Amino acid sequence: MGVGGTLDYISSLLRSSSSSSHKSKKKKVMQTVELKVRMDCDGCELKVKKALSSMKGIKSVDINRKQQKVTVTGYVEAKKVLKKAQSTGKKSEIWPYVPYNLVVQPYIAQVYDKKAPPGYVRKVENTGTSTMISNQEDPYTAMFSDENPNSCSIM
């Protein structure tokens, strides 16, 4: 191994150690970000699409103006996409809805939203009433006794 081989070996060690220090940076993962953006016309839609498409790491931007929904796919962070959408001057927020069949009680006050697209309700982490209902006995079934089926108590 001559001088040239030794230098190549040392430089490869230096490259691998410097690249390992760069690997400590947080890698962005491919993800889909859904936003609710207020859009009224083709101009609004084009403005939002153009702004989001110009971001680094964006693979696709799909817009459904009827639902006011923008779906962005790429190597991006949700907060940065939201900030970019808000920079267009349009009212924007992270998509606040989930399909109504995924919610235990889709028609209670905190979840039901008249402005939601058909088949969707507002996404709520914990409504509080679902735990309250599960902890209490149903008053109608409590009136009857399993030990004596001929008796009932009216409260």
Rank of each mutant, 00 (worst) to 15 (best):
S53H: 09
K59R: 13
G74M: 02
V76A: 09
K56Q: 12
V76W: 06
G74W: 05
M55D: 08
R65W: 04
R65Q: 13
M55V: 06
G57Y: 03
V76C: 07
Q67T: 14
E77W: 05
T71N: 07
N64A: 10
V81Y: 02
L82F: 11
E77R: 10
K66V: 15
K83P: 00
K59M: 12
T73V: 14
I63V: 12
S53M: 10
K66Q: 14
M55G: 06
R65K: 15
N64E: 13
K59G: 00
S54N: 11
G74D: 03
K79M: 02
V81G: 04
D62M: 08
Y75I: 00
V70C: 07
K59Q: 13
S60A: 07
V72A: 02
S60T: 10
V70I: 07
Y75L: 13
S54D: 12
E77A: 10
D62V: 09
K80P: 00
A78N: 03
S54F: 02
K59E: 14
M55E: 12
K59Y: 11
V61G: 02
T73Y: 04
D62G: 10
S54I: 02
K69V: 13
T71S: 12
G57P: 09
K59D: 14
Q67S: 15
V72P: 07
S53Y: 05
I63Q: 01
V70F: 09
L82W: 09
K83T: 10
V76T: 08
Q68T: 13
G57M: 05
V61T: 06
S54L: 02
K56A: 12
K83L: 11
K66F: 15
V81C: 06
K56E: 14
E77S: 11
N64K: 12
Y75W: 11
S60F: 06
I63M: 06
K79Q: 05
I63F: 03
K83C: 04
S60I: 00
V72Q: 00
T73K: 14
I58S: 06
S54P: 05
G57F: 08
V61F: 05
Q67Y: 15
G57R: 00
I63K: 01
G57W: 05
L52R: 01
V76F: 07
S60M: 02
V76K: 00
K80G: 11
T71P: 01
R65Y: 07
V76H: 04
L52P: 03
V70R: 09
N64S: 13
I63L: 08
N64F: 13
V72I: 09
E77C: 03
K83R: 11
K66R: 14
S53C: 03
Q67F: 15
G74Y: 00
L52I: 01
A78C: 01
T73S: 14
I58Y: 05
I58H: 04
K69A: 14
S54R: 08
T71R: 06
T73F: 06
K66D: 13
E77Y: 10
I58L: 08
S54W: 01
K56W: 04
K83H: 10
V76N: 05
Y75V: 02
K79P: 00
G57Q: 03
S53P: 01
M55Q: 12
A78V: 02
V72F: 07
V81H: 03
I63D: 03
L52M: 03
Q68S: 14
V70N: 07
E77G: 10
M55K: 10
K56R: 09
T71H: 05
A78K: 08
S60Q: 09
K83G: 02
L52E: 03
E77I: 06
L52G: 01
